Amino acid sequence: MFYELATLTTRLFTTAQATEGIQAWVQAPQARGRLLGCWYSDIGALNQVLVLRAFADEAEMLAERRRALLSSNPFNCGELLTGLEMHGYAGFPWMEPPAPGSYGPIYEVRTYQYKTGGLQPTLDAWQAALPARNEISPCLLAMYALDGTPRFTHFWPAASLNERSAARAAAVQQGVWPPKGGPQWLTSQMQSQIFLPTAISPLK
């Protein structure tokens, strides 16, 4: 499965207006792909709206990318934007796209850069370790970038920030996380943000 992760940086106090535009954009007759999530940033870089869509194949994803690039009003938010980034991803091969539902409302989105040659070892390490980690709290989606700096992004929902912290501590204490052999392939370039779902997000 292929994904696009778009980050819309908006003017102050325009998240609700941007969300309306995004909903119309992804539901347009010519639109491709399926909206999975639409969140606004709460901790980390602020005034950002994150849009995650799933695509059946890479061609469909790129066609939708061209629609945005050629538009004078991408995501129907042109006048609200101070920045726009769109990146293509492939899902970790054994992970199915997340089904709509209530998993949060806290969504931690983490992005790690990996060293040259590190993708396959990372996939192997995560495949071995994730079942035990999911018993503590589930990883909703993990995917690796198809463009830009070699990196992967993963989504961790939780009912609260306290639940998130407790799950991370328990995973380390039990020795199930981080994946054995995984950290040796990572660089020091890592980032994490906390997002909350907008009204239009299928992932709540």
Results as ranks from 00 to 15, higher is better:
Phe2Arg: 05
Leu5Phe: 09
Phe13Tyr: 08
Thr15Lys: 13
Gln17Glu: 12
Ala18Asn: 03
Ala24Cys: 03
Trp25Val: 04
Trp25Met: 07
Pro29Val: 04
Gln30His: 11
Ala31Met: 06
Arg34Met: 13
Leu35Asp: 09
Tyr40Ile: 02
Ile43His: 14
Ile43Asp: 01
Ala45Asp: 10
Leu46Val: 11
Val51Phe: 15
Leu52Gln: 02
Ala54Arg: 00
Glu60Lys: 00
Arg65Trp: 07
Arg67Glu: 04
Leu69Thr: 02
Leu69Asn: 05
Asn73Thr: 09
Phe75Leu: 03
Phe75Gly: 01
Asn76Ala: 05
Cys77Gln: 07
Cys77Asp: 00
Gly78Pro: 09
Glu79Ala: 15
Glu79Val: 09
Leu81Ala: 05
Leu84Tyr: 11
Met86Ile: 13
Met86Gly: 07
Ala90Arg: 10
Gly91Leu: 01
Pro93Glu: 03
Pro98Leu: 01
Gly101Val: 10
Gly101Asn: 13
Gly104Tyr: 06
Tyr112His: 08
Gly117Gln: 09
Gly118Leu: 03
Gly118Cys: 11
Leu123Val: 09
Ala125Ser: 14
Ala125Met: 13
Gln127Asp: 07
Ala129Thr: 00
Ala129Pro: 00
Pro131Leu: 12
Ala132His: 12
Glu135Phe: 01
Ser137Gly: 07
Met143Gln: 14
Tyr144Glu: 08
Ser160Thr: 10
Leu161Val: 07
Asn162His: 15
Ser165Trp: 06
Ser165Ile: 05
Ala166His: 04
Ala170Leu: 10
Ala171Ile: 08
Trp177Met: 08
Gly182Thr: 00
Met190Trp: 05
Gln191Cys: 12
Gln193Thr: 04
Leu196Ala: 13
Ala199Asn: 11
Ala199Met: 12
Pro202Ile: 12
Lys204Thr: 13
Lys204Asn: 15
Lys204Leu: 12
